[in-house]
Design a protein around this nucleic acid. Sequence first.
DNA 1: TGCGATTAAATCGTGCACGATTTATTTAAC
DNA 2: GTTAAATAAATCGTGCACGATTTAATCGCA
Lengths: 159, 159
Amino acid sequence: MKHEVTAADTALENLLCFAIYATEHSFNQFYRTLLGDLGLTYPQYLVMTLLWDRDDRTVLELGKALDLKSNTLTPLLKRLEASALLSRRRDRIDERQVRVRLTPAGKALKRKAAQVPACVTDALDMSPKELKSAIDTVNKIRKRLKDATTTAENPAGSV
Amino acid sequence: MKHEVTAADTALENLLCFAIYATEHSFNQFYRTLLGDLGLTYPQYLVMTLLWDRDDRTVLELGKALDLKSNTLTPLLKRLEASALLSRRRDRIDERQVRVRLTPAGKALKRKAAQVPACVTDALDMSPKELKSAIDTVNKIRKRLKDATTTAENPAGSV
DNA sequence: TGCGATTAAATCGTGCACGATTTATTTAAC
DNA sequence: GTTAAATAAATCGTGCACGATTTAATCGCA
């Protein structure tokens, strides 16, 4: 057998954090080949996915959906702008906000990317039920970590 | 309620990849506070965990356990060396290899880090059975992604 | 014994993440 | 209407990840 992906080392094999950490890298690797053809990185693909679903969003809106802030998003969006997939323009009414919109090329890329999700589900080889269950499990972990992180930083609770 | 951590956006909520991606960030955030006291980042903590379990490893061995290569590990190990937690020295017999060993300070840090796993399981609030099941689920996903990635890159299979 | 192939780290360049700070704009209170 | 507080992006510095390449040591084999 080639891939001893589980039980890599006894010191780590019981750590959920390591399983998530390493699986995130695996997803990244898996997407790298797929998305390379489209000229996208994985985080860029997530941004494009949001815009394909609903165009014309502010940086803040994208950040809410991705759990990222402008310090990460601004450079990433500038790269997508440099690739001519989207435009960034200050909102007419509220010039604090920058509105992000797909260009025709950005919209057109949706068709080329349409096959991507199927490649992933093929690779995962899980039933829709299994998939949903896995997503629920991981999201539950995420929620608990976020709650614990904020309470640890602010023991008084919501203020 | 404060944390709408699931269902952040309809375009992403069905993506397992996003759940993993976002949860990895949550773990990182959770560990940031905990490990900040120890002067460690999260990947550094993983390296230290390996060495606490078994000292004196080569860069390649650490890389196998973490699924990382020297391009990532060398700078990280240099920073740990700069923190005086470990030493890096060429192997006497095979000078291609660099052996990584804990310093007394590195070994001593194990005691201070002993409380970390309990903080995590507290936050997760899962039974040992649930935890194991979650780890198995995530590792299964990891294995399938890795297999799919290598076969995609090398359709002929093992050569 | 010599020399090409292999192996182990290191180096280089790019792109995230993220804490902290800065800049610019809007709002809200007076 | 002025100005202090709040808000949205951008900027800055540090530390991963990782493909690609380079450097150096060892191995294999005629």
